Simulated scan of single mutants.
Amino acid sequence: MNIEELRTYCLSKKAVTEGFPFGPETLVFKIADKIFLLTGLDSHPLTFNVKCDPELAIDLREQYPNSVIPGYHMNKKHWNTVIINGELNVSQIKDFIDHSYNMVLDSLSKKAREQLSM
């Protein structure tokens, strides 16, 4: 997966917006103004941060120590940094993105979800 494929996948999800709130080198994807993924545009290999259930985050870090690490510049309990280095397949990467998106969506109030027409 490259940056364009990552961007296309994130934007295919309902009610997602993108922006650069931290400067021109960090692309951020949000749902209802809550971040579910961010990535550096200049990172080689491609890396991105996603929200993750704390217990699952630990399991993934143990299972994929070369590809999943505690979230860089994020709360290490709730965020993972995923490194696209060939160890993970596209389906696994999409699962990590989906999990993050769904965690943020589930954290929204009922009113916020209704405003998104979910």
Rank of each mutant, 00 (worst) to 15 (best):
N102T: 07
L60F: 11
D59Q: 15
F20P: 08
V50R: 06
H99L: 14
I31F: 06
I84C: 00
N102E: 08
L116C: 09
M118C: 09
L46I: 02
P24T: 13
I84N: 00
S109R: 11
P45M: 14
P24Q: 10
K14M: 01
T26R: 02
E114R: 12
I84D: 03
C10F: 12
N75T: 11
V90N: 07
E5C: 07
D42M: 13
M1Q: 06
N85L: 04
S12W: 10
G19K: 00
Q115G: 14
C10H: 05
L11A: 00
V82K: 00
V90T: 03
M74N: 04
L11E: 03
K14S: 10
D98C: 06
G19A: 10
I69T: 01
D33Y: 03
I58T: 15
G40L: 12
T17D: 07
Y64K: 10
I93Q: 02
G86K: 10
S107I: 14
M103K: 01
H44Y: 06
N75P: 03
E5R: 14
F22L: 05
D106R: 08
G40F: 14
F96L: 15
R61V: 11
T81A: 00
M74I: 01
P45G: 11
S109Q: 05
A32K: 12
F36R: 00
D95A: 15
H44V: 12
K77F: 05
D59E: 14
Q63E: 15
I35H: 08
